[in-house]
Write a protein that binds this DNA or RNA. Structure first.
Lengths: 200, 200
DNA sequence: TCTTTACAAAAGCTATGGTTTTGTCCAATC
DNA sequence: GATTGGACAAAACCATAGCTTTTGTAAAGA
């Protein structure tokens, strides 16, 4: 069991196996026709389940929004996990791969693009969840990165460790929403910073 | 002449002396009753000027939004300038002071809060300008920081220099929108990172 | 230079009524 | 035990129409 599903299992609304399918359908609907057009009925139809089940599994519509974002975040954190799995004894290589993977995923992520490029009305309701009210997103991501970096037994104080992780997570998130170069370039930039910070 | 007004003077829509007062009034109106309630007439009345002058000085309403954000950014960059002026031969001290000043200004900035906490309709039109479509904001800020760091004659390649500045600007912006600690704490965290990166 | 006035097109508001959606409850069912 | 379908009130949304405001541009005047 990887760290992402572990994070899921600690959620209050862990829910049954339907939950994932519902969230996936919500994401598909959102990318196809916008968040405003996602209704609980349409969602239930899409999944082939009753509307009540959607409410049982997910809850309210704001909760659906959170669940969608959290689920998508899980996909990004899986990439991070994989990168760390593939470089178990080279932290900088792991970070480089993780950042590149995350930014590549962001490039092709249709849900992310639907959220970021929404400009009108209710479609923009998702944007704050990944920008101005992203504390849960940040803390989840930071927890995952911290868990993967801890085994490297860096000689840092707790707050130095936290500061480094907070920074890398925020910078990557910033590039996810607003890339300035190719994933490779940005990953190299961030990896250079990381090397300087972690191995001075 | 400081670097902020220099940046203004290079703008296409530099405009006359009225411009500043109009933008200030727009910011006041926005914080008082929301961006949706800002009309060109109300704005003209507030400043005691004709509506046409507003159009001459500013242009369209999206341009007004950009001008407001850019103007507010200028206030933040003034703080950065001041911090660097006050620590002409201690880069880390300058960075610490700059970050702390920027985050303190953010804490008390009513316009920023109005933008960030807007959730309904037209009031949210300003949010993308500082989150998902902030490329001009980012490049302006990066230019200022680069100009102030250059005199320290760090021995970096051009892209190392750019990467460091890109990172610090993005991280600070992230904390402006979504603080996780006090300005002092965050400034200390970022300054620690900066020291590691700049003086390994 | 700034203001006034004028103008068309677009967007917004008011009010109405009808429809959809939300969120919850519960009995029935597989 | 989970899922369903029906029922329900409250809220949100939609369409229509007419009216008002706002936008953005233009030209003439102080």
């Amino acid at each position: 069991m990887n760290v992402v599903t572990m994070a899921d299992s600690t959620d209050v609304a862990a829910g049954g196996p339907q939950r994932e399918r519902i969230i996936a359908a919500a994401a598909a609907l959102t990318t196809r026709s916008g968040w405003a057009s996602v209704t609980m009925s349409r969602l239930a139809d899409e999944v082939g389940v009753s509307r009540q089940t959607v409410y049982n599994e997910i809850g309210t519509k704001p909760a659906l929004a959170k669940a969608m974002v959290h689920d998508e975040l899980g996909r990004f954190l899986s990439v991070v996990d994989k990168a760390f799995d593939e470089h178990p004894d080279d932290l900088i290589a792991a970070i480089t791969a993780a950042v590149r993977g995350v930014l590549e995923l962001a490039e092709g992520n249709t849900l992310l693009h639907a959220i970021v490029s929404a400009t009108h009305g209710a479609d923009t309701e998702l944007l704050p969840l990944i920008t101005t009210h992203a504390e849960s997103l940040l803390s989840t991501a930071k927890a995952v990165v911290a868990d993967r970096m801890r085994p490297f037994r860096l000689s840092f104080t707790a707050w130095e460790f936290d500061a480094a992780i907070d920074t890398v997570v925020r910078v990557v998130l910033s590039h996810v929403m607003q890339p300035s170069g190719s994933p490779e370039e940005t990953a190299a930039d961030i990896a250079w910073i990381a090397r300087r910070v972690l191995f001075p």
